[in-house]
């Protein structure tokens, strides 16, 4: 290859774990990775929504600096490492943190088998939760006829907030409170979901990675062994995720 050709590639590509990955201006490292089906673990990111960068599972080393891939712009020549033992160990710890700060009793959870937090645990080989359990006491909101909010399992990923605000255009949710007291709140005078205009068909009602927002009366509708993560890894399902595109709506 000529020097010029080399430069041309450099100008719009990065490497991820040694693999050359092209990108378009404005794309994040995550965008570039997903476009070529490289999986960088993530929970609070969902293509099509503005990235938030709160879960920190997508931490990578970019030119030696730890950055969140979902909110860091790809830059020509950037050398990114992601699938390293060290980063995966950190991701495992972060996943364990998410487990212990909430109340996750998978055997009694409707989301089990279809839960992305659980699937992250599987992907990272999590055998136990390692840290001391926080056992928080959080409110359940069963005031809505079709959508249930069980805050025990909320991982504060902000996906429902963004989905409701930016896609559904209803702005039903927000995160309130500081530090460990952070919690999901509902944008109504009563603070109850029943007084909101959320509907089961809304993206916000469906996007929750865990069993915190559930569509009622749909529990356990797929048998064990046929649920999403009985058959697939989160690294596979992540490749097909995208908020419904405008064209899909029309079609």
């Amino acid at each position: 290859m000529t020097n010029e050709a080399n430069k041309a590639i450099d100008a719009n590509s990065i490497t991820i774990d040694g693999e050359t990955v092209p990108f378009d201006a404005g794309q994040t490292i995550m965008d570039a990775a997903l476009a070529v089906k490289i999986y960088i673990p993530h929970l609070c990111h969902y293509p099509g929504l503005t990235p938030a960068g709160n879960c920190r599972l997508c931490m990578v080393e970019a030119n030696g600096k730890s950055v969140a891939a979902c909110v860091t712009q790809a830059q020509s020549g950037q050398q990114v490492s992601s699938n390293t033992p060290e980063l995966n160990a950190a991701r495992l710890s972060i996943t364990q943190m998410l487990f212990v700060e909430g109340n996750h009793i998978c055997p009694s959870c409707e989301k089990s088998g279809n839960c992305r937090l659980q699937a992250m645990g599987y992907y990272l080989g999590m055998l136990e939760e390692h840290f001391h359990q926080f056992n928080p006491r959080r409110e359940i909101d069963a005031s809505h006829s079709t959508v249930l909010l069980d805050r025990d399992r909320c991982i504060l990923c902000d996906l429902c907030v963004r989905a409701s605000r930016d896609v559904d255009k209803k702005n039903v949710f927000a995160i309130a409170g500081r530090g460990i007291h952070a919690r999901l709140i509902v944008n109504t005078a009563s603070g109850k979901l029943g007084d909101s205009n959320i509907e089961a068909k809304d993206l916000a009602a469906k996007i929750c990675p865990v069993g915190a927002i559930l569509i009622r009366e749909r529990s356990f509708d797929s048998p064990v062994a046929e649920r999403i993560y009985d058959r697939q890894s989160i690294s596979d399902t992540a490749m097909t995720e995208h908020v419904p595109r405008k064209e899909d709506d029309r079609g």
């Binding site: 487990f99 109340n103 996750h104 009793i105 055997p107 055998l127 136990e128 928080p136 006491r137």
Partner: peptide, 19 residues
């Protein structure tokens, strides 16, 4: 060896931990 969800996380009996 810790075997099963209850040994490893407290499991269903640990639902009393919220009170």
């Amino acid at each position: 060896i810790a075997v099963g969800a209850c040994a490893i996380t407290g499991g269903v009996p640990a639902m009393r931990n919220y009170f």
